[in-house]
């Protein structure tokens, strides 16, 4: 079995894995970081979004071995020194989550979005969330939270 090594949330992580192991399963099962979720099997729901070398990627659509040597950030690595990331804060402040299952992927997508497009409007946020499905919130408060976070981070 190939040995795969990468940096996850700032720490080195490596394991022997089958080549067919998806990055999401490496993260969840080998590293025990279960904040990253699997909500579909067609790579559409976005519950599994993590950052690979600073960019949002669906960890269910990439093999762990493809991420060899990469710098991975998961939702667990977002808060720094016990302080929530502004996007995390905004999701709580604006009730951008209910059951919480899609939330890690939503938050990771939102952080990436704000990095790419600091000046957001509602239409852009809604379009950019095409790859993230939420069944609880109707997106209303997710959109509000992302807009608020982008303001706060300016």
């Amino acid at each position: 079995m190939p040995v795969v090594a990468m940096t996850v949330n700032g720490k080195p992580a490596s394991a022997d894995v089958e080549a067919r192991t998806l990055l999401v399963h490496f993260i969840r099962e080998h590293l025990g970081l279960t904040g990253t979720h699997v909500g579909c099997d067609t790579s559409q729901c976005g519950a599994c979004v993590v950052h690979v070398d600073g960019r949002a990627v669906k960890s269910c659509a990439i093999l762990a071995v493809q991420a060899e040597g990469a710098d991975i950030v998961t939702v667990e690595g977002l808060a720094k020194n016990g302080e929530l990331h502004p996007v995390q804060q905004a999701f709580r402040e604006h009730h951008g989550l209910q059951c919480g299952f899609c939330t890690p992927g939503m938050i990771m997508t939102a952080v990436d979005l704000i990095r790419r497009k600091p000046n957001l409007d509602e239409k852009t946020v809604r379009e950019e969330l095409e790859g993230n499905i939420c069944r609880c919130t109707g997106y209303h408060n997710i959109v509000k939270a992302i807009l608020a976070a982008s303001q706060a981070m300016r």
């Binding site: 279960t34 904040g35 667990e76 999701f91 989550l97 919480g100 299952f101 939330t103």
Partner: peptide, 12 residues
């Protein structure tokens, strides 16, 4: 309940 969900510490 939000703290555990936004930090990836829920237990599904």
């Amino acid at each position: 309940e939000d703290f555990r969900f936004i930090t990836g510490n829920g237990h599904y």
